[in-house]
């Protein structure tokens, strides 16, 4: 940020009144600050996870044995690939290839949908086993396991909500590209949407080992 802060006054003199073009840096800055707040939202949950894992090590260990690493791995691959197609969609619009960008963006949304479907299967298997918050068979288990699965549903659920929100945002971006509101010369909206999508991806990268790999 320092180069913004220390711009000489002359650089600004074209400012406000005359110029009409967008402040791309400002828009991105706003987005980064927003991403910071999203990170802190999840940070609260990670803190809770850390404290309870420390207090109930054995229960968390048993909980980790029961989650389906297979589903988690598939979903990790899906999300990572979706981040790739997201980047490619931005790259395409930068080179002015509208339809290529549309294709990549649609596949990103498709991967998001695939992620939610896999998640849905995974949750329904757990629920059929009787593991869901407040269920009789979960309440019979140790406190550590109750907390583990409580956090499992809360954290992956909140994350899934973010994936869903990301898909809605990306759908809007798709419409903008089709209507030529996002073009080669003005694609900061798409970039910001991409940043959001990557954030959702990164949070999953941390959720994956915490719930599927450590056991």
């Amino acid at each position: 940020m320092s180069e913004i802060a220390e711009r000489p006054p002359e650089a600004l003199s074209h400012g406000a009144a005359e110029h009409k073009h967008k402040d791309v840096l400002g828009a991105k800055m706003g987005m980064w600050i927003f991403l910071l707040t999203e990170l802190l939202l999840f940070a609260g949950l990670f803190l809770v996870y850390a404290v309870y894992r420390y207090q109930h090590t054995a229960g968390f260990h048993r909980g980790g044995m029961e989650t389906h690493t297979m589903f988690g791995t598939v979903n990790t691959m899906i999300l990572l690939t979706s981040s790739l197609t997201m980047v490619l969609a931005i790259g395409a619009i930068q080179r002015g290839k509208k339809w290529l960008s549309v294709t990549f963006l649609s596949s990103t949304i498709g991967f998001g949908l695939a992620f939610l479907i896999v998640k849905g299967f995974e949750w329904s298997i757990e629920i059929r086993k009787g593991i869901y918050p407040g269920s009789p068979s979960l309440l019979k288990k140790s406190n550590g396991e109750i907390l583990f699965f409580g956090l499992y549903y809360t954290m992956t659920g909140l994350h899934a909500l973010h994936v869903f929100a990301g898909m809605i945002i990306l759908t809007f971006m798709l419409v903008f590209i089709l209507r030529n509101k996002i073009t080669k010369d003005d694609y900061v909206k798409l970039e910001n949407a991409g940043l959001y999508w990557h954030l959702v991806d990164i949070i999953w990268i941390f959720l994956f080992p915490l719930f599927y790999l450590i056991n």
Binding site: V48, H56, P133, G134, S142, N143, I146, L147, G150, Y153
Partner: peptide
């Protein structure tokens, strides 16, 4: 709403 137990001492919460 869901009785998750995160802060409920009866379920191990703190």
């Amino acid at each position: 709403v869901f009785h998750v137990g995160i802060f409920n001492p009866a379920l191990g919460g703190d």
